[in-house]
Design a binder for these strands. Structure first.
Lengths: 200, 200
DNA sequence: TGCTTTTTAGCACGACCGTTCGTTTCCTGT
DNA sequence: ACAGGAAACGAACGGTCGTGCTAAAAAGCA
């Protein structure tokens, strides 16, 4: 890895942590350059525009999400266990990934849902990736015989995502300690409803 | 209502619609003054600081939320019907309230959850109000004999909020037409699980 | 080593930011 | 109609924004 790639990576690390606190649009090149210990223009040269920087940061965040949430969950067997692992990993992935300010992608989704352009496209693509991934895990649970074959996968993903979103809001805004427990309870209820009939 | 109050109100209307698109922190006094057709300093005088403006906007948004979502739902009888009305009103309240850019309070919740200060406090207080209100409606449904007496009210509110959050993200970011249907389906499942036993 | 390419710094730019101040215009009550 | 106060304005402030341009420094390679 050449010098360029190296500093680019440290910039992205710093940018990710900064933007987790103040958001993707709040991220400013000057402030980021200070954090990274280099000049504005030197940093700028790595990306060419602020938009490119924002997109690069989101991509970096997504990769770290995969590394922190998805990959470890693959060690669980296919089915509900893996879904549960995804949930629990997801619930505190920002802490484990050293992003004290919350999920950058989620923040970006709220900031850019009304601002057409490449950044919004990147956010949409990123979240769509997550949905596909989740849908796959649900289908595996069906194949494993743990969830009903006639399940509406998209509906399951919808409700699963809702649990994650409200848990994050509760723990981030209200600093509630039991948000994760509530999320798990909701998950178990969700699974119970969509589980294969044990006998009527 | 004196002249001052009058223009202050038109400013807040304009500010609310603007901030629904670009967020509370993205709201700039210059841009807002242009929209309102007055000078920066003239507008500024009404609030004294940007922070005060932001808080005033959030308060205005909250009142409009009550007028658009809560008040109409009170026409429904206490119980599940009223809860369902709250949900359906909530799902498209930003359209009916002429806020094309989504719920300002939710946007602010994501922007300010890491930025201590009066604005964050206002957001937290506002959302806490909503939770209390929702919890009350749930308790009325219990009293009406439609939900189990041993229900965990906070848990119900938690899951209800999750449904709303994911529905909004889906309709705003993915422009999905069936987000509302999915939300209603999820709601009915929620209610079914917590309904009084019809007979075992 | 020297040479070429890549990477970084310095500086300046126009634009916009929130805010202050002094002035002018408008409204209101008598 | 007029005085007094409220409301709006225009100009300016110190800053920061993103973005170019040019030169120096560093890195990679012969």
């Amino acid at each position: 890895m050449g010098k360029g790639e190296e500093t680019r990576q440290t910039i992205l690390d710093e940018a990710l942590s900064l933007c987790s606190r103040i958001g993707v649009s709040g991220l400013s090149i000057g402030a980021l350059a200070d954090k990274a210990g280099m000049s504005k223009s030197g940093l700028f040269a790595h990306f060419g525009s602020k938009e490119e920087l924002q997109i690069a940061v989101l991509r970096e965040g997504q990769q770290r999400f995969v590394d922190t949430v998805v990959r470890p969950a693959l060690k669980q067997p296919r089915g509900v266990a893996r879904l549960r692992a995804i949930l629990t990993n997801w619930l505190d992935w920002t802490r484990r990934a050293q992003l004290p300010g919350g999920c950058p992608m989620n923040a970006a989704a709220n900031e850019f849902d009304d601002q057409p352009g490449p950044v919004r496209d990147a956010v949409e693509a990123g979240l769509a990736d997550g949905r596909r991934l989740l849908a796959n895990a649900v289908r595996l649970a069906v194949e494993a015989g743990e969830l009903r074959p006639d399940i509406d996968v998209e509906q399951f993903v919808f409700e699963f995502t809702g649990i994650v979103l409200v848990a994050m809001q509760n723990q981030r805004l209200f600093r509630e300690k039991d948000a994760n427990r509530r999320a798990l309870d909701a998950f178990e209820r969700l699974v119970r409803d969509y589980a294969v009939q044990q006998k009527e």
